[in-house]
């Protein structure tokens, strides 16, 4: 397998890893958001709870969850190593650097944006995944499904959490804005006719994910107060 390790440890191989995991995580975002948007339906979260329960109990999904975690870890670890070696490639910094003249701020800030997303992710996992999976047994809703919906109402009632969620989601949005189309380029997918399409999809996708995720905490904060 030496050819494989050769490839994966080369600069381009590392980029391939970043883009494959990144695109995989994008697909997760799409599923995640689709289910979350169900929470906006005026049915007291019944359908949302059902979907959430399915996602946390189906054996196939549970298996994919492991892959998902692996994807996160590889994406994060790889970016850490790449960033470190990139910093080593310029030991003496410029005194004056007009970065905005040649590139967008968010394309140059993928590490910071990614770190913000990671920070948010940890809080987010603590709020929902760890809470529901390990700490407490969720009460049942009127259909007898574990009631994730009520947990959401409680979390988003806190204005500070709301702000953290919004920051996290916007960091994610800018991360995607560069990351999505960058991933395709790293995979060598390039065509005079289709590359603009990929770039368009990337922008649309970033807006959809950002606004979709942003609307939920805001909606819950204003329209779904806890009962007590």
């Amino acid at each position: 397998m030496s050819w494989f390790t050769h490839m994966m440890t080369s600069s381009i191989g590392k980029k391939v890893v970043m883009s494959v995991t990144g695109l995989f995580l994008c697909s997760f975002l799409l599923v995640h958001l689709s289910i979350n948007l169900l929470s906006l339906l005026p049915d007291n979260g019944l359908l949302f709870n059902e979907a959430a329960h399915f996602m946390s109990s189906n054996p196939l999904i549970r298996t994919i969850e492991i892959v998902l975690f692996a994807g996160f870890i590889i994406h994060i670890a790889q970016s850490y190593f790449i960033t470190r070696s990139n910093q080593k490639a310029r030991p003496v910094k410029y005194a004056v650097n007009a970065g905005n003249a040649n590139s967008t701020w968010y394309s140059r800030s993928m590490g910071i944006l990614g770190s913000l997303v990671l920070f948010f992710l940890i809080i987010h996992l603590r709020h929902f995944w760890i809470e529901s999976r390990f700490l407490t047994e969720l009460p049942a809703d009127s259909n007898g499904t574990p009631d994730m919906y009520t947990l959401m109402i409680e979390v988003f009632a806190n204005p500070i959490y709301n702000i953290i969620y919004l920051l996290g989601v916007f960091a994610l949005g800018y991360h995607l804005m560069h990351g999505f189309q960058s991933a395709w380029r790293s995979l060598g997918i390039m065509h005079r006719k289709y590359t603009p399409v990929i770039q368009g999809i990337g922008i649309a996708f970033s807006f959809f994910i950002t606004l979709g995720f942003a609307i939920i905490p805001v909606f819950f904060y204003f329209f779904r107060q806890p009962n007590q």
């Binding site: 490839m7 080369s10 600069s11 381009i12 590392k14 980029k15 391939v16 790449i82 070696s85 990139n86 080593k88 490639a89 310029r90 970065g99 003249a101 040649n102 590139s103 967008t104 394309s107 140059r108 993928m110 560069h178 189309q181 960058s182 380029r185 790293s186 995979l187 060598g188 997918i189 390039m190 005079r192 590359t195």
Partner: peptide, 29 residues
């Protein structure tokens, strides 16, 4: 260092070499 597709190279290249070449390099590799 490693490319993160910021496009700064293309913008500053005096011969305006396109970053599409980087995509082609990746594909070739």
């Amino acid at each position: 260092g490693n490319c993160t597709n910021t496009g700064a190279c293309e913008a500053e290249c005096p011969k305006e070499i396109s970053v599409m070449n980087i995509a082609r390099l990746n594909r070739e590799y």
